[in-house]
Simulated scan of single mutants.
Amino acid sequence: MKIRRPRRPRQFRVADSAQQIVGGFLLAGPFVVTEEVWILAGSMSAIQAVLTVCVVSAIGYGALYTADTTRDPDVEQEVAGVPVRFISLLLVSFGSVLILALLFNAPTAFLDDVETRSAVTWITFKAVSVGSVFSIVGAATADSVFSK
């Protein structure tokens, strides 16, 4: 006998994104304004940045679909085979860190000795990837705890 696990509605609602945004911003803030994060980002290589993005994605997917056993990615709305909820989670996680970094003028504050605009952009990308490790935890937790 196979026990069916309860499934959540297939529809991804605006309220779900709002919950993710609250959680993402909540945990992103402290890391955007920490100088150590920007120093760390400046010393990271390209492969480390890409691997950090992969870790963020794995944490998000695991939090949504492995830790929360009532959610099934196979029954959710998809875009190109990827669940919309997961896409939203990634956008919120990276977006919340980037928005706060730009809002607080963190790249200018922490990277005043960097000479080229492309270098500032690259280090900002790496800092956003580091901050997103924490932001995705908050976003996924809020989505799982508050969704019905």
Rank of each mutant, 00 (worst) to 15 (best):
N105W: 13
F12D: 14
N105Y: 13
G60P: 04
A18Y: 15
Y65M: 04
F110Q: 05
F25Y: 01
R10T: 13
G131Q: 07
L89R: 06
L111R: 14
R8S: 14
G95I: 02
D143C: 10
A63S: 12
V33W: 02
V114M: 10
G24P: 00
P73N: 08
L98I: 12
V84T: 08
L40M: 15
F134I: 07
G62T: 00
L27W: 06
V22Y: 02
A109Q: 10
V53I: 12
I136V: 15
A49C: 13
S129V: 01
A15N: 09
V32A: 06
A18H: 15
G81H: 03
L111N: 15
G29S: 10
A140F: 00
T124F: 02
L111D: 15
S147R: 09
S43F: 10
S135G: 03
T121R: 08
V97S: 08
L103C: 08
V55H: 01
K2C: 01
R8A: 14
Y61S: 14
I87L: 14
R7E: 14
V137D: 02
L102R: 05
A18L: 15
A80K: 09
G62D: 02
P6F: 10
V130P: 02
S96H: 01
G42D: 04
V92M: 03
F104H: 09
Y61C: 13
Q20V: 10
I3S: 09
L26F: 12
S96N: 01
I59Y: 08
G81Q: 06
S118V: 11
L98M: 11
E36N: 06
F86K: 02
P73T: 04
F104G: 07
V114Y: 09
Q19S: 11
M1W: 09
P73R: 05
T108Y: 13
S43D: 12
W38H: 05
A106Y: 07
S17Q: 11
T141I: 14
I47M: 12
L111Q: 15
S43N: 13
R4P: 15
L64W: 01
I99T: 05
V97Y: 03
Q11V: 07
A106M: 06
A18M: 15
Q19A: 12
S93D: 05
R8Q: 13
I123E: 04
L64K: 00
L103T: 11
G29Q: 08
D68S: 04
T34L: 12
V50Q: 07
S45E: 03
S93W: 05
V114E: 12
Q11D: 07
G42E: 04
V14P: 07
W122E: 13
L91N: 02
Q19H: 11
A139G: 00
K2N: 04
V114Q: 09
V32F: 03
L100Y: 12
L100Q: 13
K126I: 14
R71M: 03
V145Q: 13
P9H: 03
R7T: 13
F12S: 14
Y65S: 04
L26C: 05
K126D: 13
A109T: 11
F25S: 01
G42C: 02
V37W: 09
S129T: 02
P9A: 06
S144I: 11
L90W: 06
K148E: 14
G23E: 04
K2T: 04
N105A: 14
T52G: 00
A109P: 08
I3C: 09
F110A: 10
G81A: 04
